[in-house]
Protein backbone atom coordinates (compact mmCIF):
# COMPACT_ATOMS: atom_id res chain seq x y z
CA UNK A 1 0.00 0.00 0.00
CA UNK A 2 2.72 2.36 1.04
CA UNK A 3 5.01 1.62 -1.86
CA UNK A 4 2.07 2.04 -4.16
CA UNK A 5 1.39 5.44 -2.69
CA UNK A 6 4.99 6.47 -3.17
CA UNK A 7 4.79 5.21 -6.71
CA UNK A 8 1.64 7.26 -7.32
CA UNK A 9 3.20 10.35 -5.78
CA UNK A 10 6.28 9.82 -7.89
CA UNK A 11 4.15 9.61 -11.01
CA UNK A 12 2.34 12.77 -10.06
CA UNK A 13 5.57 14.68 -9.45
CA UNK A 14 6.91 13.50 -12.77
CA UNK A 15 3.73 14.57 -14.49
CA UNK A 16 3.99 18.00 -12.97
CA UNK A 17 7.63 18.29 -14.00
CA UNK A 18 6.90 17.43 -17.61
CA UNK A 19 3.95 19.80 -17.69
CA UNK A 20 5.89 22.66 -16.16
CA UNK A 21 8.94 22.22 -18.39
CA UNK A 22 6.73 22.11 -21.44
CA UNK A 23 4.82 25.18 -20.26
CA UNK A 24 8.10 27.05 -19.95
CA UNK A 25 9.07 26.03 -23.48
CA UNK A 26 5.62 27.03 -24.68
CA UNK A 27 5.68 30.45 -23.11
CA UNK A 28 9.34 31.21 -23.80
CA UNK A 29 8.81 32.91 -27.19
CA UNK A 30 6.08 35.15 -25.78
CA UNK A 31 8.25 35.93 -22.80
CA UNK A 32 11.06 36.82 -25.14
CA UNK A 33 8.82 39.20 -27.10
CA UNK A 34 8.05 41.15 -23.95
CA UNK A 35 11.59 40.98 -22.61
CA UNK A 36 13.11 42.28 -25.82
CA UNK A 37 10.45 44.97 -25.98
CA UNK A 38 11.39 46.21 -22.51
CA UNK A 39 15.16 45.97 -22.82
CA UNK A 40 17.15 49.17 -22.91
CA UNK A 41 17.93 50.09 -26.51
CA UNK A 42 21.60 49.17 -26.19
CA UNK A 43 20.87 45.88 -24.48
CA UNK A 44 18.86 44.23 -27.22
CA UNK A 45 21.85 42.83 -29.06
CA UNK A 46 24.04 42.33 -26.01
CA UNK A 47 25.80 39.06 -25.34
CA UNK A 48 24.92 37.22 -23.20
CA UNK A 49 21.25 38.13 -23.70
CA UNK A 50 19.55 39.77 -20.74
CA UNK A 51 17.00 37.20 -19.66
CA UNK A 52 15.42 39.67 -17.27
CA UNK A 53 15.12 43.23 -18.53
CA UNK A 54 17.05 45.77 -16.52
CA UNK A 55 13.93 47.72 -15.72
CA UNK A 56 12.43 44.74 -13.90
CA UNK A 57 15.63 44.07 -12.01
CA UNK A 58 16.49 47.64 -11.11
CA UNK A 59 13.40 49.79 -11.02
CA UNK A 60 12.04 48.81 -7.62
CA UNK A 61 15.39 48.58 -5.78
CA UNK A 62 16.44 51.95 -7.15
CA UNK A 63 13.09 53.45 -6.35
CA UNK A 64 13.18 52.12 -2.81
CA UNK A 65 16.72 53.37 -2.32
CA UNK A 66 15.34 56.80 -3.07
CA UNK A 67 17.13 57.16 -6.38
CA UNK A 68 13.90 58.08 -8.07
CA UNK A 69 15.44 59.96 -10.93
CA UNK A 70 17.61 57.05 -11.95
CA UNK A 71 14.68 54.65 -11.59
CA UNK A 72 12.42 56.79 -13.71
CA UNK A 73 15.18 57.24 -16.25
CA UNK A 74 15.51 53.49 -16.68
CA UNK A 75 11.75 53.17 -16.91
CA UNK A 76 11.50 55.79 -19.61
CA UNK A 77 14.43 54.31 -21.55
CA UNK A 78 12.81 50.87 -21.43
CA UNK A 79 9.64 52.20 -22.94
CA UNK A 80 11.50 54.19 -25.54
CA UNK A 81 10.62 51.95 -28.45
CA UNK A 82 6.99 51.81 -27.32
CA UNK A 83 7.04 55.60 -27.22
CA UNK A 84 8.58 55.80 -30.66
CA UNK A 85 5.82 53.53 -31.95
CA UNK A 86 3.10 55.66 -30.46
CA UNK A 87 4.45 59.08 -31.33
CA UNK A 88 6.66 58.89 -34.41
CA UNK A 89 4.98 56.06 -36.23
CA UNK A 90 1.28 55.79 -36.97
CA UNK A 91 0.68 53.02 -34.48
CA UNK A 92 -2.39 54.49 -32.73
CA UNK A 93 -4.10 54.79 -36.09
CA UNK A 94 -3.22 51.18 -37.00
CA UNK A 95 -4.47 50.05 -33.64
CA UNK A 96 -7.74 51.90 -34.16
CA UNK A 97 -8.11 50.43 -37.66
CA UNK A 98 -7.54 46.93 -36.33
CA UNK A 99 -10.17 47.44 -33.65
CA UNK A 100 -12.65 48.92 -36.11
CA UNK A 101 -12.16 46.17 -38.68
CA UNK A 102 -12.21 43.32 -36.17
CA UNK A 103 -15.28 44.57 -34.34
CA UNK A 104 -17.29 45.32 -37.48
CA UNK A 105 -16.43 42.02 -39.12
CA UNK A 106 -17.20 40.14 -35.92
CA UNK A 107 -20.63 41.72 -35.50
CA UNK A 108 -21.40 41.08 -39.15
CA UNK A 109 -20.38 37.46 -38.93
CA UNK A 110 -22.40 36.91 -35.77
CA UNK A 111 -25.54 38.15 -37.47
CA UNK A 112 -25.08 36.39 -40.80
CA UNK A 113 -23.84 33.10 -39.41
CA UNK A 114 -26.47 32.82 -36.72
CA UNK A 115 -29.19 33.39 -39.31
CA UNK A 116 -27.70 30.87 -41.71
CA UNK A 117 -26.84 28.40 -38.95
CA UNK A 118 -30.38 28.59 -37.67
CA UNK A 119 -32.04 27.57 -40.92
CA UNK A 120 -29.43 24.93 -41.62
CA UNK A 121 -29.95 23.42 -38.19
CA UNK A 122 -33.67 23.75 -37.73
CA UNK A 123 -35.38 24.07 -41.08
CA UNK A 124 -36.23 21.76 -43.92
CA UNK A 125 -36.24 23.30 -47.35
CA UNK A 126 -35.28 22.20 -50.83
CA UNK A 127 -31.57 22.40 -51.42
CA UNK A 128 -30.66 22.76 -47.77
CA UNK A 129 -28.11 19.99 -47.58
CA UNK A 130 -26.78 20.84 -50.99
CA UNK A 131 -26.17 24.48 -50.06
CA UNK A 132 -24.70 23.49 -46.73
CA UNK A 133 -22.21 21.08 -48.23
CA UNK A 134 -21.23 23.50 -50.96
CA UNK A 135 -20.34 26.00 -48.29
CA UNK A 136 -18.60 23.55 -46.00
CA UNK A 137 -16.58 21.94 -48.76
CA UNK A 138 -14.89 25.24 -49.52
CA UNK A 139 -13.33 25.13 -46.06
CA UNK A 140 -10.80 22.70 -47.50
CA UNK A 141 -9.60 25.05 -50.20
CA UNK A 142 -6.35 26.80 -49.36
CA UNK A 143 -6.87 30.54 -49.07
CA UNK A 144 -4.09 31.21 -51.53
CA UNK A 145 -6.19 29.79 -54.35
CA UNK A 146 -8.58 32.71 -54.25
CA UNK A 147 -6.12 35.46 -53.49
CA UNK A 148 -5.69 36.68 -57.05
CA UNK A 149 -9.34 36.58 -58.13
CA UNK A 150 -10.28 38.21 -54.83
CA UNK A 151 -7.92 41.04 -55.48
CA UNK A 152 -9.28 41.64 -58.96
CA UNK A 153 -12.81 41.40 -57.58
CA UNK A 154 -12.20 43.92 -54.82
CA UNK A 155 -10.69 46.28 -57.36
CA UNK A 156 -13.71 45.93 -59.62
CA UNK A 157 -16.09 46.52 -56.75
CA UNK A 158 -14.25 49.75 -56.09
CA UNK A 159 -13.64 49.04 -52.41
CA UNK A 160 -9.89 48.61 -52.65
CA UNK A 161 -8.07 51.01 -50.40
CA UNK A 162 -10.96 51.34 -48.03
CA UNK A 163 -11.45 49.37 -44.86
CA UNK A 164 -14.44 47.66 -46.49
CA UNK A 165 -11.99 45.56 -48.45
CA UNK A 166 -10.80 43.95 -45.23
CA UNK A 167 -14.19 43.88 -43.52
CA UNK A 168 -16.33 42.27 -46.22
CA UNK A 169 -14.30 39.20 -47.29
CA UNK A 170 -14.09 37.71 -43.79
CA UNK A 171 -17.89 37.83 -43.66
CA UNK A 172 -17.87 35.00 -46.18
CA UNK A 173 -15.91 32.61 -43.93
CA UNK A 174 -17.98 29.47 -43.48
CA UNK A 175 -16.59 28.08 -40.26
CA UNK A 176 -19.11 30.10 -38.27
CA UNK A 177 -22.07 28.66 -40.15
CA UNK A 178 -20.83 25.21 -39.28
CA UNK A 179 -20.30 26.15 -35.66
CA UNK A 180 -23.70 27.79 -35.26
CA UNK A 181 -25.43 24.88 -36.94
CA UNK A 182 -23.71 22.40 -34.63
CA UNK A 183 -24.81 24.34 -31.62
CA UNK A 184 -28.34 25.18 -32.73
CA UNK A 185 -29.03 21.54 -33.46
CA UNK A 186 -28.96 21.05 -29.71
CA UNK A 187 -31.77 23.56 -29.13
CA UNK A 188 -34.99 21.58 -28.72
CA UNK A 189 -37.22 22.02 -31.73
CA UNK A 190 -40.23 22.04 -29.39
CA UNK A 191 -39.28 25.54 -28.29
CA UNK A 192 -39.49 26.79 -31.86
CA UNK A 193 -42.73 24.97 -32.47
CA UNK A 194 -44.17 26.47 -29.33
CA UNK A 195 -43.23 29.96 -30.40
CA UNK A 196 -44.81 29.39 -33.77
CA UNK A 197 -48.02 28.20 -32.18
CA UNK A 198 -48.00 31.38 -30.10
CA UNK A 199 -48.03 33.24 -33.39
CA UNK A 200 -44.51 34.61 -33.30
CA UNK A 201 -43.13 35.63 -36.67
CA UNK A 202 -40.12 33.85 -38.07
CA UNK A 203 -37.86 36.75 -37.31
CA UNK A 204 -39.20 37.09 -33.81
CA UNK A 205 -38.63 33.42 -33.17
CA UNK A 206 -35.04 33.81 -34.30
CA UNK A 207 -34.42 36.98 -32.36
CA UNK A 208 -36.29 36.17 -29.16
CA UNK A 209 -35.69 32.45 -28.84
CA UNK A 210 -32.79 31.26 -30.90
CA UNK A 211 -30.41 34.14 -30.26
CA UNK A 212 -30.73 34.15 -26.46
CA UNK A 213 -30.31 30.38 -26.35
CA UNK A 214 -27.24 30.54 -28.58
CA UNK A 215 -25.33 33.04 -26.49
CA UNK A 216 -22.49 30.68 -25.60
CA UNK A 217 -21.97 29.74 -29.23
CA UNK A 218 -22.20 33.37 -30.30
CA UNK A 219 -19.60 34.33 -27.73
CA UNK A 220 -17.33 31.58 -28.98
CA UNK A 221 -17.77 32.49 -32.60
CA UNK A 222 -17.32 36.16 -31.80
CA UNK A 223 -14.02 35.56 -30.08
CA UNK A 224 -12.65 33.21 -32.70
CA UNK A 225 -13.64 35.63 -35.47
CA UNK A 226 -12.18 38.58 -33.65
CA UNK A 227 -8.96 36.67 -33.24
CA UNK A 228 -8.66 35.61 -36.84
CA UNK A 229 -9.48 39.06 -38.21
CA UNK A 230 -7.19 40.77 -35.73
CA UNK A 231 -4.32 38.49 -36.71
CA UNK A 232 -4.93 38.36 -40.45
CA UNK A 233 -1.94 39.47 -42.41
CA UNK A 234 -1.58 38.57 -46.05
CA UNK A 235 -4.87 39.93 -47.34
CA UNK A 236 -4.67 43.36 -45.66
CA UNK A 237 -1.05 43.57 -46.80
CA UNK A 238 -2.20 43.19 -50.37
CA UNK A 239 -5.26 45.42 -50.45
CA UNK A 240 -4.36 48.28 -48.13
CA UNK A 241 -2.02 50.74 -49.78
CA UNK A 242 -2.17 53.76 -47.54
CA UNK A 243 -0.39 53.84 -44.25
CA UNK A 244 -3.36 55.47 -42.52
CA UNK A 245 -5.47 52.45 -43.49
CA UNK A 246 -3.03 49.80 -42.27
CA UNK A 247 -4.07 47.30 -39.68
CA UNK A 248 -1.65 46.39 -36.93
CA UNK A 249 0.07 43.36 -38.50
CA UNK A 250 0.57 45.20 -41.79
CA UNK A 251 1.94 48.19 -39.94
CA UNK A 252 4.32 45.88 -38.09
CA UNK A 253 5.52 44.43 -41.35
CA UNK A 254 6.33 47.88 -42.69
CA UNK A 255 8.30 48.54 -39.53
CA UNK A 256 10.59 45.81 -40.68
CA UNK A 257 12.32 48.30 -42.92
CA UNK A 258 14.58 45.83 -44.58
CA UNK A 259 17.86 47.60 -44.14
CA UNK A 260 17.55 48.85 -40.62
CA UNK A 261 16.16 45.94 -38.62
CA UNK A 262 15.54 47.05 -35.07
CA UNK A 263 14.54 44.10 -32.93
CA UNK A 264 13.65 46.27 -29.95
CA UNK A 265 11.14 48.22 -31.99
CA UNK A 266 9.81 45.11 -33.74
CA UNK A 267 9.28 43.23 -30.51
CA UNK A 268 7.56 46.25 -28.95
CA UNK A 269 5.20 46.31 -31.90
CA UNK A 270 4.69 42.57 -31.64
CA UNK A 271 3.94 42.92 -27.95
CA UNK A 272 1.40 45.67 -28.55
CA UNK A 273 -0.37 43.59 -31.15
CA UNK A 274 -0.33 40.49 -28.96
CA UNK A 275 -1.60 42.11 -25.75
CA UNK A 276 -5.26 42.55 -26.79
CA UNK A 277 -5.51 38.92 -27.87
CA UNK A 278 -3.91 37.73 -24.67
CA UNK A 279 -6.36 39.79 -22.63
CA UNK A 280 -9.32 38.56 -24.65
CA UNK A 281 -8.12 35.01 -24.18
CA UNK A 282 -7.57 35.25 -20.46
CA UNK A 283 -11.01 36.75 -19.92
CA UNK A 284 -12.99 34.53 -22.24
CA UNK A 285 -10.99 31.35 -21.98
CA UNK A 286 -13.97 29.08 -21.58
CA UNK A 287 -15.52 30.30 -24.82
CA UNK A 288 -12.37 29.50 -26.75
CA UNK A 289 -12.49 26.01 -25.35
CA UNK A 290 -16.17 25.62 -26.05
CA UNK A 291 -15.72 26.75 -29.62
CA UNK A 292 -12.99 24.25 -30.24
CA UNK A 293 -14.91 21.35 -28.78
CA UNK A 294 -18.09 22.31 -30.64
CA UNK A 295 -16.29 22.58 -33.94
CA UNK A 296 -14.60 19.28 -33.37
CA UNK A 297 -17.54 17.10 -32.49
CA UNK A 298 -19.70 15.11 -34.73
CA UNK A 299 -22.67 16.56 -36.49
Amino acid sequence: MNSRKIFATGLRVMAYCILIVWAIIALMPLYWVFTTALQLPDEVLSMPPKLIPTVVKKFIPLYLQGDKDQALHILSESFKSVRVLFTDIGLPKWFFNSVLVSVTATLGILLLDSMAGYVFAKKQFPGRDFLFWIMISTMMIPGQVTLVPMFILVTKLGIKNSLWSVILPPLAMVFGVFLMRQFMKTIPTELIEAARIDGASEFKTYWKIIIPLSKPALATLGILTFMSVWNSFLWPLIVLNKSYLYTLPVGLKTLQDKNLVNYGLLMSGAAISAIPMIIVFLFFQRYFIKGLTLGGLKG
Binding site: W22, A23, A26, L27, P29, L30, W32, V33, T36, M227, W230, N231, F233, P249, L252, K253, L266, M267, A270, S273, A274, M277, I278, V280, F281, Q285, F288, I289
Partner: peptide, 15 residues
Protein backbone atom coordinates in the same frame (compact mmCIF):
# COMPACT_ATOMS: atom_id res chain seq x y z
CA UNK B 1 -0.58 25.69 -23.75
CA UNK B 2 -3.24 27.56 -25.63
CA UNK B 3 -1.95 31.08 -25.08
CA UNK B 4 0.75 31.08 -27.81
CA UNK B 5 -1.90 29.98 -30.30
CA UNK B 6 -3.90 33.20 -29.94
CA UNK B 7 -1.03 35.40 -31.04
CA UNK B 8 -0.56 35.84 -34.74
CA UNK B 9 1.87 33.85 -36.84
CA UNK B 10 3.53 37.14 -37.66
CA UNK B 11 4.43 37.73 -34.03
CA UNK B 12 5.46 34.13 -33.41
CA UNK B 13 7.62 34.01 -36.54
CA UNK B 14 9.21 37.35 -35.74
CA UNK B 15 10.28 36.25 -32.29
Amino acid sequence: YYLPTVTSVVVISMV
